[in-house]
Design a protein around this nucleic acid. Structure first.
Lengths: 157, 157
DNA sequence: GATGAAAACTTTATAAG
DNA sequence: CTTATAAAGTTTTCATC
């Protein structure tokens, strides 16, 4: 069931840690940083990519400058809980610009959604113009993020 | 109060969109993709970096292969709600490997925390060995992510 | 594993239409 | 804005210790 993964060593971890912070490091800089020869470092990095440990390299944008300074966490319960209704709602959420993450969850609510907006005014607009236009919502509850204490795109290795 | 940002045009947006998907594009590939000359594309990209629209470039790792296949969303209320207690708890959370995101939030709970673990067994271990060792928790509630419908690190421009 | 080296490509800067 | 050019640096492959 679970794919057999090779054990990672400290050098693999150091490479991933460095590239998680800065994907634009040249191989020479990376090798220096992790204390390997350039060839060894190059081979390891390619291996980590090929084996799928490194899924890709992406640019991170500044939410604030783009007019999405605020994060709201939104719990949603739907009227119906059949497979189809749940999947449809998720697919609709996924099309919305403001939606950064959407999870079908266990517990009192059906969905947990992370939304980026510009203040309470932006959130009101998001609810009115986008979320409440999707059919099938029974109840929702919003939590404004007052302060972000940590936010990393993937786990620290 | 809000810094005056220049208006982004379609070319800026196309560059950011492309680099959000693949930060390893060469300038020549990027220029081709967004339909600009290489010089124009190069100048725009540097400008977007210098102005801070592009915050950086990072590697995304495969959570599953690293043994953190499951996402749990965790709401926490603390015993005390003074500034100091809230900040301390957030700082402690931020040190934990499993914690990907942690927000101080408005509403019934104090914190909303996104955790990456390996199954219910991994979550139990996280609670016992890490979360419950932090003092001051009054109440917590967990939602296991059953399905991820969307997950992007920054807003689509 | 390490080191060296060569070819192809990229980055960065600058000049000119 | 474009096209063109050029030096310096990087990627990628490959041979050898």
């Amino acid at each position: 069931m679970s794919p057999k993964n090779r054990a990672l060593d400290n050098q693999d971890r150091r490479i991933m840690r460095a590239l998680q912070k800065n994907a634009r490091l040249s191989n020479a800089e990376l090798a220096e940083l992790v204390g390997m020869s350039t060839t060894a470092c190059w081979n390891r990095t390619r291996q980590l990519e090929n084996e799928g440990y490194i899924r890709g390299y992406v640019a991170l944008l500044d939410q604030q400058k783009l007019g999405f300074a605020d994060i709201v966490l939104l719990e949603v319960t739907l009227d119906r809980h059949d497979d189809d209704a749940l999947a449809r709602f998720g697919a609709e959420l996924a099309t919305l610009t403001e939606v950064l993450e959407a999870y079908l969850v266990s517990g009192d609510y059906d969905y947990l959604v992370k939304v980026a907006v510009d203040g309470t005014a932006g959130y009101e607009r998001f609810l009115r113009e986008k979320l409440y236009k999707i059919a099938g919502i029974r109840h929702s509850r919003s939590m404004f993020a007052l302060r972000c204490m940590k936010s990393i795109p993937s786990v620290q290795v």
